[in-house]
């Protein structure tokens, strides 16, 4: 009886230990340990600023801010967003394509959440359409899609001639 107990316990223990030790001998699953790069942090900070802009707008609409305060704070947040986008561009130039895609997603959300519809471009820019990133708004500097008629961030109209001077690189 004692031997059986020991045998069963031993078997279970060996199974468990083998399971835990398995990756040490079979490092097949290549884990990526680098996704905590500064880039992730930058993207998150940018997201947080964009969220703040959205919230600020909602607070303004529900009467928690005077219009001067709103404009002042909105301006400040937009500048922060722009500077973060510039930093992002420096760290990973290609990522701006994805940025524009994210922008499109956020824009769609804003359309439903509270931004007056006239400030928006029509929701034609689906995130799945290929986006050429190398255009920037002449007013606020935010990246825009090649097909956009208005800036998603500040709502300024985008004319081809104006934008030409802002082409990156």
């Amino acid at each position: 009886m004692l031997w059986l107990t020991i045998a069963i316990a031993l078997l279970l223990a060996i199974l468990a230990i083998a399971f835990v030790a398995w990756p040490l001998w079979h490092p097949s699953t290549a884990l990526r340990l680098d996704d905590d790069s500064p880039l992730t942090e930058l993207i998150q900070r940018k997201d947080s600023v964009l969220l703040s802009i959205k919230e600020l707008e909602f607070d303004y609409q529900t009467g928690k801010l005077s219009s001067e305060d709103y404009q002042r704070l909105d301006q400040r947040l937009r500048q922060q967003a722009i500077s973060l986008l510039r930093q992002l561009e420096k760290v990973a130039p290609d990522s701006i394509a994805l940025e524009a895609e994210l922008e499109a997603a956020i824009r769609q959300q804003r359309q439903t959440v509270g931004r007056p519809a006239r400030d928006e471009e029509p929701a034609s820019a689906k995130p799945t359409t290929p986006i050429r990133p190398h255009r920037f708004c002449p007013q606020c500097g935010a990246p825009t899609t090649a097909t956009a008629n208005f800036c998603a961030t500040c709502g300024a109209p985008l004319h081809k001639a104006d934008v030409a001077t802002n082409v990156a690189e």
Binding site: D34, D35, A92, S95, L98
Partner: peptide
Amino acid sequence: MPAQAGALADTA
């Protein structure tokens, strides 16, 4: 978002 961040890390 995190999925994209991962993708970005790759491109970076």
